[in-house]
Nucleic acid binder design. Structure first.
Lengths: 233, 233
DNA sequence: CCATGCTTTGACCCGACGGTCAAAAAATCG
DNA sequence: CGATTTTTTGACCGTCGGGTCAAAGCATGG
């Protein structure tokens, strides 16, 4: 289909140079048509923009609704949310990065739809957080700030994710979840809660390394402990 | 100074409508001059762009160097990094959001500088994380992903931070740090790890407990390891 | 009050861009 | 093949935006 080819080329060009940085001539050249021919498929520039974004946004709305059905505890829900969000961004990275970067250049109606999508996604996340706190699973924190932090983390993917990179989107998502749930600081309580992605061998190596680390640290600390009896500054 | 007035107006307009969405005429109108008069202060459009971004970027370079002098442990360093990053974004929110959103529309040299700033900041953060892991303070995690996650969180501020909002930049930064260090999940063990309040005794106890835990885990894993030879899915 | 230099004007040039359209070219089909 | 419809062309229009420039305004100070 020629129309789809045009939309795809347009999307790619928009992403590379920004919406305002691409002329209809550029798109026509890319597809191998003349500027005039484009008007057979689109009534004007904004209409093209609408076709580029419109379908995608409504699709995202649907997808968001499906993937956040709210089964499982807050932890599982948060995990699902992040996984969904990450896969969504990585699969439509062109459109995501475009929407974030050139939001101001979108036709008003498209822009409004996009903002609504963001808002809805945000409110889903906040609900999960609230639930988690209420259930006693999460520490009570500033809901708004946490939501923005999490969304920012995920959305930022559109700025650096490379499909041919060493990590899959799913792996990145799980890394995010682990960071979000447990933080960076090493602590010794129970087993990790994160999904099945943890291999047994990797886990064993990890623990072996951890033991070595802690042993060394402990030895280093012993003399210190001998000197001062209490807690240091 | 007229020149500064022009730069300020240009920055504001650029942020509102995107770089390509602002004509020299627009800027001239804003300042109350004629298009021609602008050329008394700037040799061309790209030169104006350079003046808008140039000073700021070199200033950021300097500031980054100062604020990441590397005193204190990894935890403190991470806290300082996030605090600095957040205050930097919130104080120059126009320029940050512009650089992120319209990076493609920047003159090549300015763009290169900006990318270098990002890269340097990123490498500072990664160094902190690496150090933290080496010191046993942080869980071993994917350095790259963590760095992007943290930077994303901070950079995303440029999309939602409101100077007149309920929280100050410093408060938001501390919220971020707490999330990053301790995660969302509620845990009931005694003293928090944050800040300099960590006494030598507590640390020693912590490491002793950690070693016990990891040893147990390792033993639990050994049978599993005998079964499958390679890494699990 | 004139001379000098900084600042501003406003008209102008040119190229690019969005958009239009009649006519040509292709495709479809009886 | 011929008729009809779909697709494409390429020339054209008006506008806008970046950039130029001679001339006018406006200070400043001798």
């Amino acid at each position: 289909m020629v129309r789809d080819e045009v939309v795809r080329s347009a999307t790619r060009l928009f992403k590379e140079r920004g919406i305002r940085g691409v002329s209809l001539q550029d798109i026509a050249d890319e597809v191998g048509l003349t500027k005039g021919a484009l008007y057979h498929y689109f009534s004007n520039r904004d209409d093209l923009l609408r076709q580029v974004f419109g379908d995608w946004i409504t699709q995202e709305f649907e997808s968001l609704r499906e993937h956040t059905s709210g089964s499982g505890g807050p932890t599982a829900q948060l995990r699902d949310y992040v996984r969904y969000h990450v896969s969504s961004v990585t699969q439509n990275i062109d459109l995501y990065s475009l929407s974030f970067s050139s939001e101001a250049e979108l036709p008003p109606d498209v822009r409004a739809e996009f903002r609504q999508l963001k808002r809805r996604s945000d409110s889903v996340l906040k609900a999960i957080l609230r639930e988690g706190v209420a259930a006693g699973d999460f520490e009570p924190r500033d809901e708004k700030v946490m939501a923005f932090a999490i969304d920012g983390m995920c959305n930022w993917l559109s700025q650096w994710y490379a499909p041919d990179g060493p990590k899959t989107a799913a792996q990145i998502a799980d890394d995010f979840v682990e960071l979000l749930l447990r933080g960076l600081v090493r602590h010794d309580d129970g087993p990790t809660d994160s999904g099945p992605a943890h291999g047994a061998v990797a886990t064993a190596e990890y623990h072996a390394r951890a033991i070595r680390f802690h042993s060394e640290r402990l030895e280093q600390l012993l003399p210190t402990l001998a000197d001062r009896g209490g807690a240091g500054a």
